[in-house]
Amino acid sequence: MGLIEKQTLTLMIHIKRTEMVEKAKNRGLTHPEVVACSQELDVLLNRYQKIA
């Protein structure tokens, strides 16, 4: 995986994490939207771990 792709994935992780934190502040940790966002973040983090 190239540097650009790795940087893009890193940015996507940052954005998704920020989105999840904001939703958790407004809706609570167990809200379905927060859980879904957390699962999406897990997928991104797993992809990153495979290339790191």
Rank of each mutant, 00 (worst) to 15 (best):
I4K: 09
G28I: 06
E19T: 10
K50I: 05
T30D: 08
A24C: 07
E19N: 07
V21Q: 09
R47E: 11
A24G: 00
C37R: 01
R47I: 14
E19A: 06
A36H: 11
D42T: 11
E5L: 14
G2D: 14
V43E: 12
H31R: 00
K6L: 14
N46D: 14
K16M: 15
T10S: 15
I51G: 05
K6Y: 04
A36P: 00
V21Y: 07
M20P: 00
G28E: 02
L9F: 13
A24D: 00
G28C: 01
N46L: 05
I4T: 11
L11A: 15
R17K: 14
K23F: 08
D42G: 04
K25A: 01
Y48A: 15
K50A: 13
Q49W: 06
M12F: 11
R17N: 07
L45N: 07
E19C: 04
G28L: 03
H31V: 02
A36D: 10
T10I: 11
L11K: 13
M1K: 04
N26A: 00
R47F: 06
I15F: 06
V21P: 00
N26S: 01
I13V: 15
K23Y: 08
V21T: 05
I13C: 14
C37T: 10
N46W: 00
A24I: 06
T18I: 04
R17H: 10
L3C: 04
N46T: 12
I13Q: 08
A36W: 09
S38E: 03
K25N: 03
P32I: 14
I15T: 15
V34S: 03
I13W: 05
C37F: 03
T30S: 08
R17A: 14
P32C: 04
N46Y: 03
T30I: 03
I4Q: 06
R27M: 07
A52R: 13
I51R: 09
I15Y: 10
E22V: 00
S38G: 09
T8E: 14
M20Y: 02
R47K: 15
I51P: 07
A24V: 01
C37K: 03
M20K: 07
T10E: 15
G2P: 10
K50G: 05
E5I: 13
L9W: 08
L3S: 10
V34E: 02
T30V: 03
Q49C: 07
Q39K: 15
Q7D: 11
A36T: 09
A36M: 11
G28P: 02
E40T: 12
T18P: 01
T18V: 08
V43H: 10
V21H: 05
K50E: 13
Y48I: 12
N46K: 14
